[in-house]
Amino acid sequence: MDNKKIDYLIEKHNSEASSLIQILLDIQSENHWLPKEALERVSEKLQIPLTRTMHIASFYKAFSLVPKGRHEVHICMGTACHVRGAKRVLETVEDLTGIKPGETDVDMKFSLETVNCLGCCALGPVIEINGKTHGKISVSETAEVLNSYK
């Protein structure tokens, strides 16, 4: 992510220090993670100490300080999904991708995260890939869905 792009996102928020989280969220959604250079640039432009930016970037789970894969897989482990077999879905995804929650595979294809509720419990078990929800998913469907992502 180049500085021009970062500067654009900062200016979109009028370079206000109070918009730090919004700016970081914008960079996160654009770039899928927050590189050190981006945090430094934001700190410098907003005149916020880097320690503070780091504190905030490491505090919220919405931010990632490590590179993410092209496709972000979120598996719901909430109560409703859990009783409907979210664990088996998770195991299948782990087997197919070879990664555990919080990790990214070597090809940078998938990043896996577990979440505690996606808010659509009637669709359990639910997985969400790149923001698209796949509900009532079975183990065999899981494989199909994952294979459809290149």
Partner: peptide
């Protein structure tokens, strides 16, 4: 601002910014 907090909850810790 050479040292700051990072992370949260039970994982919260202090960390130096190496460059500073």
């Amino acid at each position: 601002n050479a040292v700051g907090f990072i992370d949260r909850g039970i994982n919260k810790e202090i960390s130096f910014i190496p460059e500073i």
